[in-house]
Design a protein around this nucleic acid. Structure first.
Lengths: 110, 110
DNA sequence: CAGAATCCTCCATGATACTG
DNA sequence: CAGTATCATGGAGGATTCTG
């Protein structure tokens, strides 16, 4: 159980989840463009993990040049909805956290 | 925004959040007992971060031996509620993920 | 008891090169 | 294009020691 949370609450996993949730069916290279800062290695690795966990469906087309498409499974979409609460929490309380940090910094110096 | 998620979706942060949410006001040493596997360093470090972000309130008593108590702020509790969806998701779909993993492993071998 | 400070290790990740 | 393979490294985190 704890390991499920650990895998699912991963930075890259969340970003991929978001990208697929918003864009539907996406090719590998397009994904890397949609997620600034991700390396090719982490994209591959995280996608494999998500596919393994049943969050992502991977479709390979026998073409030249190769084409591989990724999309969320129903399980993947349900995870997206579950995380929705956390996203909206972050947006809603962003300013509050900023303020807390500044207050904390002042307290450290004072 | 992205950094908020990154900090909040941290393994130790989540475990501390859960421990405080369930147990209310807790001393440092009791926390380390409530969270098996956490080192003294990570407990201190994560608590400081959470305090800095306004998720946790820290109270020091001028006693000998020292006593320090931790508890969630309203902001901390609200984060706990936001993550509730993810927890219940994990519980609800645990078996489904397990099955997907086994299926994936078979496919790899086959 | 509740930490701060130090050292050290290992692993996740990035960078690079290669391939079908 | 969509990867795999290999090497290098920075930093997260553990173990230990010390202190008010």
């Amino acid at each position: 159980m704890n390991d499920i949370i650990g895998r699912v609450a991963d930075k890259w996993t969340l970003l991929i989840l978001e990208a697929l949730d918003e864009n539907g069916v996406v090719r590998f290279k397009e994904l890397s463009r949609l997620i600034p800062g991700i390396s090719q290695k982490m994209l591959t690795q995280t996608l494999r993990q998500m596919e393994c966990d049943g969050l992502v469906k991977r479709t390979v087309y026998a073409e030249v040049p190769p084409r591989v498409e990724y999309e969320l499974t129903p399980l993947g979409f349900s995870l997206g909805e579950a995380f929705c609460g956390v996203w909206t929490w972050a947006e809603k309380h962003y300013a509050e956290i900023e303020a807390a940090r500044k207050k904390f910094a002042r307290r450290q110096r004072g």
